[in-house]
Design a protein around this nucleic acid. Structure first.
Lengths: 352, 352
DNA sequence: CCAAAAAATACAAACGTTTTCATTTCGGCG
DNA sequence: CGCCGAAATGAAAACGTTTGTATTTTTTGG
């Protein structure tokens, strides 16, 4: 009772170098394609024996489900769009991508990164909305979006999730880091160490128009003022010589501060270098505190405010999946705490 | 001669909140769906007038092509898989992603990032090969893949492109940075400055098993030896206190070097901090050279070897697209040059 | 002005799944 | 042993495109 050779391929011996379809698997396993399909998507609906057989054949034929076909049939795209501005190789953006991708790919979704660099790209994106029908959700990360744009975007009928973005009414959910709290932690730390002459270094607002910049500085200054202290504020201009420029500004201050708070580690770390080169010892002459706890902060001994963008992104991803799969609507707005990490760049102010 | 209302939607007034299909556009524009399709994919095949009309209607109905359907029909997945190990938020990996994504998304492809962290994930990936039929190409970045795996992977019939990877026979193309040349540049720079007591700091080979590590150190040592110099080699163990540990090792050396070359900026930058704190001035007492020209190198004034991973990745992406779209098979193996960037962390050795 | 070629458009058949509905098989129990 | 409900499986339609072929329209040139 020889079993007849499979139907599609003429010769039994010929290995199907061309990839197998569900039909091939069905033929070989002597079941219908529905059974094959169910073996993958609804294992509970097929008997263990059949399923085992199907999986064995699938393995043998190197079969995997065509996501395109599945997507078409189910109406899901299995894709989640991430809208980001500027470059994504910086620490924060890359961390967000890492966190999102980890969760999404585990759940069977692809993360489709849409970088919007130029004005023109921006216009074109919102004009044509290529994500329409091609994404099951849109995540917006560190990207300030205006009224018009958000309105247009929400015309596509999928959840919109904000990460590190101001809460917009059309967002289905938002995850942020508590910049307000973080800045207060920084300010309090310095003040508790006895510092009264405090300098705050910010980036040029014209360059990074993201709201969190504003929130950091305002919260920092607000807390200090509440303590009767008025910090000086200095702006680091962008450009090749921004740190040289910055140190020049600082050195020409009428009075040197005893502590410097920086809006981000990227300012703090080079600043420490320059201070040391100019004869100021950190922290014995001047304390420096950063913000982010990014790559080099630990190894360099920088006291800073830690954010955990990967965790935040993972949480955002899970919220997104909840929204897509229509389980419990998640808490709409989540705020992640920031933490003070004390290392060796800050110390009690010296009595003078 | 009133035009009849469109056929699918009962009421003319009702805005199709549900997204439009190609059929809706065809109806409204009074053409066939083939014409609509061709208006998007083969503009040359439809008359300018018709095309304008179609695009107008498409815009009006907020239509965009369903990538899933198109993918199914054409047999392309419109997806390119990126295989990466470990975390992707580090500077190099993130830069590669940025470069790849820029090119791929411009060409209409999605970059699907597959992070392989654990042994188990690795096994599972190569066992089930979920990319089969679901990626038009596979890019492998900074990921050492063994014989067995590459063999299995190449069973899926798409181009495999290596980025920053050792050339495997099954790779369709490879793009690398010239670590050999870069290391020589670093060595020569130090030697030209008169340094003879040179220390090389490497990472723990057990941690980062990537080949380029090995190449960097060997080329560096090789060049030095050619010049009659035998550098000391110190290994920075991983861990929370790796820099403390490192500086301890260095300070207990029988003789302090006049120059230190680091395998990566991530070692060099914190090292400078620690040297300064231990009373050694950089560069007047000790010169330090890094490798990578990563984020902080410029602002910190680090002399280093510049790599341009974004450019490299863009080039890899274009090669990939060439391979997919079957134009000219690109040059199979491309090596990007590394450059010496002299800043203020190295100087001529002092006469003693 | 007409025929023939070229350009533009339409028709219809896939692509590989998922899923509804119908059918078969199985196990339990009277 | 036979019946019934449940479990397992199968048949077939549809998802929204692309594209080969057929048809219609336009252009061209004698």
């Amino acid at each position: 009772m020889a079993t007849p050779p499979q139907r599609r391929h003429p010769a039994t011996t010929k290995e199907p170098t061309t990839t197998a379809t569900i039909q091939d698997v069905a033929n070989r396993a002597k079941v219908s394609i529905s059974t094959v399909s169910r073996s993958f998507t609804r294992p509970d609906l097929v008997s263990p024996k059949t399923r085992a057989k199907v999986l064995a054949v699938a393995d043998e034929l190197n079969f995997s489900i065509s996501r395109s076909a599945a997507a078409l049939k189910t109406g899901q795209s299995l894709r989640i769009a991430l809208l980001v501005s500027n470059h994504i190789s910086n620490w924060f953006a890359a961390s967000v991508i890492e966190g999102l991708n980890a969760e999404f790919s585990a759940a069977g979704y692809d993360l489709s990164i849409i970088q919007i660099d130029s004005r023109q790209q921006r216009r074109e994106f919102f004009d044509t909305l290529p994500v329409r029908r091609n994404a099951d959700a849109v995540v917006i990360a560190s990207f300030d979006i205006d009224e018009e744009e958000i309105k247009r975007l929400s015309s596509i009928d999928v959840p919109i999730i904000g990460v590190n973005s101001v809460l917009q009414s059309s967002f289905s959910a938002t995850v942020n880091i508590d910049d307000h709290q973080g800045s207060i932690l920084a300010a309090r730390h310095l003040i508790q160490l006895g510092h009264r002459h405090i300098l705050y270094v910010r980036t040029n607002p014209a360059q990074s128009l993201h709201f969190s910049v504003q929130e950091r500085i305002e919260s920092f200054l607000g807390y200090c003022r509440g303590q009767g202290i008025e910090p000086t504020v200095v702006t680091a201009e962008e450009g090749t010589y921004r740190i040289d420029n910055l140190i020049t500004q600082i050195l020409s201050l009428p009075e040197m501060p005893t502590a410097i708070a920086c809006q981000e580690d990227g300012l703090a770390i080079p600043l420490i270098f320059q201070l040391e080169r100019n004869g100021f010892s950190v922290p014995s002459d001047i304390s420096v505190i950063g913000y982010d706890d990014s790559t080099y902060a630990h190894d360099v001994g920088l006291t800073t405010i830690r954010q955990l963008p990967i965790d935040m992104a993972r949480s955002a991803a899970r919220k997104t999946l909840d929204l897509i799969e229509g389980h419990t609507p998640p808490k709409r707005n989540e705020v992640f705490p920031a933490h003070l990490v004390v290392r060796s760049s800050t110390s009690r102010v010296e009595d003078r």
